[in-house]
Amino acid sequence: MNISDYLSALLLIAGGLFFLAGTLGLLRFPDIYTRLHALTKADNVGLGLMVAGLAIQADSWAVVGKLLLIWGLVLLAGASVAYLIANGALKRGIRLWRR
């Protein structure tokens, strides 16, 4: 293993931790808005770290471009869908969680 292998392993593990935290938030947070917060924040950064880790190992720049495109699409879809779900929940009168 050389330095780039260690670097991508580090990035992948860090990304996995973000996914773990996001899943934990989805399961444990009290209402739909906080769960969305946990999911989107964690998945966007987690996937970004994973893409970075995989891009280091990629054979060509074309593969890096494809990986970045996937990340961009997920960012776009994740942010939009989170807004749509939260907006729909607000319109249905689901209250924000208060301690």
Partner: peptide, 15 residues
């Protein structure tokens, strides 16, 4: 139309 959904659609459909 929902503005966010509309924008998302306009970006994604050509892609």
């Amino acid at each position: 139309a929902n503005l966010v959904l509309d924008t998302l659609m306009r970006l994604l459909v050509p892609l």
